[in-house]
Design a protein around this nucleic acid. Sequence first.
RNA 1: UGGGGAGUCGUCUAAUGGUAGGACAGCGGACUCUGGAUCCGUAAGUGAAGGUUCAACUCCUUCCUCCCCAGCCA
Length: 563
Amino acid sequence: MDATNSNRPDDFIRDIVRQDIKTNKFGGRVHTRFPPEPNGYLHIGHAKAIWISFGIAEEFGGLYNLRFDDTDPTKEEQKYVDAIIQDIYWLGWDWGDRLYFASDYFEQMYEYAVQLIKKGKAYVDDLSADEIREYRGTLTEPGKPSPYRDRPIEENLDLFKRMKAGEFPDGSCVLRARIDMASPNMNMRDPVMYRILHATHPHTGAKWCIYPMYDWAHGLEDSIEGITHSLCSLEFEDHRPLYDWFLDELGIYHPQQIEFGRYSLTYTVMSKRILRPLVETGIVSGWDDPRMPTLSGMRRRGYTPEAIRIYCESSGVSRANTTIDLAFLEHCLREDLNSRAPRIMGVLRPLRLIIDNYPENQVEELDAVNNPEDPGAGTRKVPFSKVLYIEQDDFREVPPPKYYRLTPGREVRLRYAYLVTCVGVKKDEKTGEIIEVHCTYDPATRGGDAPDGRKVQSTLHWVSAAHALEAEARLYDKLFTRENPLDVEAGADYKDYLNPDSLEILKSCRVEPSLAKASAGSLYQFERTGYFCVDPDTSPEKLVFNRTVTLRDTWAKIQKQQK
RNA sequence: UGGGGAGUCGUCUAAUGGUAGGACAGCGGACUCUGGAUCCGUAAGUGAAGGUUCAACUCCUUCCUCCCCAGCCA
């Protein structure tokens, strides 16, 4: 069976869920969650994780929650909450009224912690952070118990209450689970449950000064919300015994944690550690720079939610950490854009073409197809006249092998217009640069077909000089030159692998007049060159386009081979 | 050198003891008013060695490689 392109994805998680439904494990329910920490922007890796959790719930007729895992006020901000909501909503998910905040459960978590203390399963530790680290041991040596580990329960209760009351400064003490300092799993060596942080929290303000750690909080959040399958990435596998331990000790509802492999993409990095300096040093224009792997960047670039969904569905789920080829993402993008993007003609690097035998002041309105993949998209009129612009690349005075565009003496088609034959060029006397191409046209070929049935080798796009709109095009390429920018050679830095050509700005493009009212976010295929979308920087005076992705370019491939 | 994971064409992913298949990328071709799209063809893989079996990607043993864990981050 072809699982890759199937409309019904299948993977080990879906197998488990299917089995759980069959055995009535959670009363037949499926309820998942996506738990972002609001400390940064979402990227394409998150989109995949969201697709896994939300998609599975959706497929099995279950529910999914959006929950902010906001347990560290020193890193979290409201602006991230807002941006994350916007991004996930843009992706097309609708969590209904199930928007939750872990911080709304702090009171309940506190009560649970008290229960654990009363069971003798948690204690307040006065050791400093450094001391705790020393006492924890190493990967090969067991840890040793803190001198405060056997504090009487009453004392722990009192101390914990006073921690909450704000009697102690940051870092003075913590609440720890009392498990096993000799466990080969470092996570089980009396993990910290609460630390003191006198900080303002974006959601709870100054209400709390003790904040729960991830391991303590996460299972409780899942339990409180009645999550059935708590899906997360592989690095949390070591934490599952702890997840289970807390829930079992408390004797409360126990969701099942399942881990999947992490996803990365070639030629990009997802890590904030790398991305942040790019933003801060101005190497990119912001978190929404169209070269960024952030969802806001991809949105500005012209990626569609549908393309991202195709990518998620088609790239599979497994327990292996994988690196997906950027070309595959782009393939999914083109697949979506090809079917939906209206075609227009736009010339990126204009070269004047003059039709010597065309009447001086004549203008014809020619019919052009809006989208050959979608007959319902109809046609439009495009003005044609004596002076046109064509692409510089579409003319060669001396053609290289296999070049079959315009060259002296050759006849080509101007798309939807006429067959024209090159009869000469005009060069700048000083530089020798070609500044004009002269052609003659065959009036009998109006619309682009010759009555005698003769064929031409190529069809060029064009715009009428007098009617064209000026536009700026921002051409994007991969941000890094290496498949894995983090795989740095000795003495090198990921910054050495930044692609110097990741952005090229063309300021004097010419596009057909039908684009006059194009609004920000609109997507087009510039025939023969690529998919473009209107950037928010666009204005009535100047259209600004982002190149989303090029068309597959066989000629570029041939040229590459010839070198 | 403690613990936990993962190894199938270059990449992603199927085959759950019975012909190692698909997708992307590559290569070649057909078609075309986008060198687009579409279609066809082609090369390429089970980390290694043993063992069990009529039969092993699948089960067993040993080994190798890669990833994660020593935050009062998530």
